[in-house]
Amino acid sequence: MASPTSDVTTAAAADDPAVGLRAIRALRELADRLEVLQVANARSRGWSWQQVADALGVTRQAAHKKHAGNRKDD
């Protein structure tokens, strides 16, 4: 198991697939959870779905489909 102090490059280029893949999964999960928070915040400040989508670099439909069910946003 990698120590917390290990180099960024150690894991990014880790040749142990177990370490590398676990890190990818954790990053994706982290990004997903942050995305939920950020989108909810943007919407509660009155951002349109189009504005949210532009910022995320996705289509309006994709942003709406992924997030419209969350919180009080339907």
Binding site: P4, S6, V8, T10, A11, R25
Partner: peptide, 15 residues
């Protein structure tokens, strides 16, 4: 939790 603190630490991310 898939939000694995050890795996993230290995990437230099402090959860």
């Amino acid at each position: 939790d898939p939000l694995d603190a050890d795996a993230l630490a290995a990437l230099g991310v402090d959860l």
